[in-house]
């Protein structure tokens, strides 16, 4: 069984649900290559985000893998390679 790829829109939704959006950050803009840190997401926010992705997509993401994916594009690539 194949599952659909995770889209940037799905990632934005998960970010909003788990960690919210910071003041002055427009998640609706093109953020594919903007670093998570620049979007106001610290390591804990990424931990929460990864945990929600795991639950939703039924995959396992190692902490180091998530930490190494510094942009939405990189994180989507990791998720969609599973």
């Amino acid at each position: 069984m194949t599952r659909p790829d995770m889209t940037i829109e799905a990632l934005k939704r998960i970010l909003r649900e788990g960690a919210g959006a910071d003041e002055g950050v427009d998640l609706d803009a093109d953020i594919l290559d903007v670093e998570f840190a620049e979007l106001g997401y610290d390591s804990l926010a990424m931990l929460e985000t990864a945990s929600r992705i795991e639950r939703e997509y039924g995959i396992k993401l190692e902490d180091e893998t998530t930490a190494a994916a510094r942009t939405p594009r990189a994180l989507l690539a990791v998720v969609n390679s599973r």
């Binding site: 649900e17 919210g20 959006a21 910071d22 926010a45």
Partner: peptide
């Protein structure tokens, strides 16, 4: 407060 703070 921003939603970034509401979630936590």
């Amino acid at each position: 407060l921003p939603s970034r703070l509401l979630s936590q």
